[in-house]
């Protein structure tokens, strides 16, 4: 098994984003974004929905290309990789999709076994053991033979998590892993992410809105808004750093620098109250 994301201990930064600029559908998603994701840590990326957190993860894995700027993962420029190199890189990256993205053709077991079957020639017994271990870790060993459509959203999320970690990647990107989990499952998943990070040294990028959960495990928080990093720091103290961004985001206030509304024309004018306009 290859481990393309080479561990170079002298470099503390696994993912380095510089000057990232992306325009999608006429809307600037990233505006010269700079950020670093430290190796071996749990980094949480937070931000209002629609800011481009998912888009950022897709840029890191090379699924989307930036209009300008660069992304280096473990020293390799993602935009400059060939398909083979990119696939090699991705073999060392786990990705938990926002909506699970289980393969509906296969049952739970086969979904988790899928990356192993595709990239290794391991004997069936070994695949079985590996898969069952990962399923046990997310508490779904008993559901191994269920089909994805027989799972609840939370269960599907946990199966997707098992699939993301089955290859023991060096970097795991979690896109909103806590959505739809009940408190018990949420706690388990939290512990799992923490264990993976602490015992295997897996670098984790956690996109989430659950500040309480993030505070329990994250080492570092980056707050994105309007295409830029507006605040970053220790999760325990970031909410109190006094900036208007964090005060509004963590305080949940409607007024502040983060617009609650998607950009639109004048409301009264659009409703037709011509006289009421400004």
């Amino acid at each position: 098994m290859t481990q393309p994301v080479r561990a170079t201990p002298d470099d503390a930064t696994l993912v380095r984003v510089r000057g990232l600029t992306t325009v999608l559908g006429g809307k600037t998603i990233f505006d010269a974004l700079d950020l670093d994701i430290p190796r071996g840590k749990i980094t949480s990326i937070m931000g209002p929905s629609g800011t481009g957190k998912t888009t950022l993860l897709k840029h890191i894995t090379g699924q989307m290309r930036a209009d300008a700027g660069s992304i280096h993962v473990d020293g390799q420029d993602v935009a400059g990789l060939s398909r083979e190199q990119l696939y090699k890189l991705r073999e060392g990256v786990g990705y938990l999709f926002q909506n699970s993205a289980l393969l509906t053709d296969f049952d739970v077991f086969e979904n988790v076994a899928f990356p192993l079957r595709q990239h290794t020639k391991l004997p069936e017994v070994l695949i079985r053991d590996l898969v069952l271990m990962k399923l046990q870790a997310v508490g779904l060993r008993g559901a191994a033979r269920l089909m994805p459509n027989e799972l609840s959203g939370g269960m599907a999320r946990r199966v997707a998590l098992a699939r993301a970690i089955v290859f023991d990647p060096q970097l795991i990107l979690y896109d909103e892993p806590f959505v739809g989990l009940d408190p018990v499952a949420l706690n388990q998943v939290l512990k799992l992410i923490l264990t993976l990070n602490q015992t295997l040294g897996i670098t984790s990028v956690l996109v989430s809105h659950e500040l309480a959960a993030v505070q329990q495990i994250a080492d570092h928080v980056i707050l994105l808004a309007k295409g830029k990093v507006v605040a970053q720091g220790d999760p325990k103290t970031i909410a109190d750093d006094g900036s208007p961004w964090t005060r509004q985001f963590f305080g949940g206030e409607a007024d502040g620098p983060i617009p609650f509304r998607y950009p639109a024309g004048d409301y009264a004018a659009e409703l037709g109250f011509a006289g009421a306009a400004k």
Binding site: R83, Y87, R90, F97, L103, P115, H119
Partner: peptide, 18 residues
């Protein structure tokens, strides 16, 4: 079409499966 709608195609890309 449904595989694309449910991100399964993206998931394959991410699992380094073309």
């Amino acid at each position: 079409g449904l595989m694309r709608a449910t991100d399964q195609i993206d998931a394959m890309e991410m699992m380094a499966v073309d």
